[in-house]
Simulated assay, not measured.
Amino acid sequence: MTRKRPAQVRGGLAARRPAAFTVVDGLDAAAQRDVRALVEPLDRTFLARTLPDPHAPNDRPGWERRC
């Protein structure tokens, strides 16, 4: 089976993605679920403790538009 590279799958946006996302893309489905189960509680905590930055440019990733 040939996997598509992240740039092919996501319209060439892979260059703007952190390396962690590229690594997760290379994991099998079970490992991706395990990583997601570990990261989702951290995401919820981050979102609960930060606010949207109204002055951040819209072309930046969501985690960079928080303060």
Rank of each mutant, 00 (worst) to 15 (best):
R3S: 05
G11K: 10
C67P: 00
N58E: 13
A19K: 15
L42G: 03
L13G: 03
R44G: 00
P41Q: 06
A48H: 07
R10T: 07
L51E: 12
G26N: 07
M1C: 07
A15Y: 04
T45E: 15
C67V: 11
P52K: 05
V35K: 01
D25N: 08
T50W: 10
P57K: 11
L38Q: 14
R36T: 06
A14K: 10
D34L: 09
G26M: 09
A7E: 14
V39I: 13
A30K: 12
L42E: 08
D53T: 04
A56S: 10
R66K: 08
E40M: 13
L13K: 13
D43S: 09
N58C: 05
D59P: 00
F46Q: 03
A19G: 03
F21R: 02
V9C: 04
G62L: 15
R65L: 05
A48D: 12
P57F: 06
P41E: 08
R49D: 09
T50V: 11
L38F: 05
R3D: 02
R65I: 03
K4C: 04
G12Y: 03
A15D: 12
L42P: 00
D59A: 10
R33G: 02
G62Q: 13
C67Y: 08
V39H: 00
G62R: 15
Q8A: 10
Q8D: 14
R66H: 02
K4D: 08
R17W: 12
F21Q: 09
D25G: 01
A7F: 08
A48S: 13
A20M: 14
L38G: 10
P6R: 09
M1R: 12
T22D: 12
G26S: 11
A31P: 00
A56F: 02
R49A: 11
A29K: 15
R17S: 08
A14G: 11
A37E: 08
A20P: 01
T22S: 12
V24C: 04
A20T: 11
D53N: 13
D25Q: 11
A14D: 15
R49P: 00
A30E: 15
G11M: 09
L42D: 03
T2P: 09
V24P: 00
G62S: 14
R49K: 14
D59L: 12
R16L: 11
R10I: 04
P6Y: 06
D25W: 09
T22W: 07
A14L: 10
L13N: 06
D53V: 03
R10P: 00
A31G: 01
G26F: 01
P18E: 15
R5C: 04
L51P: 00
R17I: 02
R10D: 01
P61T: 07
D59K: 10
T50P: 09
R16C: 01
D59T: 11
A15W: 04
D34C: 01
T2D: 08
A31Y: 02
D59H: 14
V23G: 01
F21Y: 04
F21I: 01
D28N: 14
N58H: 08
P61D: 07
P57T: 07
D53L: 04
P41A: 06
R44M: 03
R10G: 01
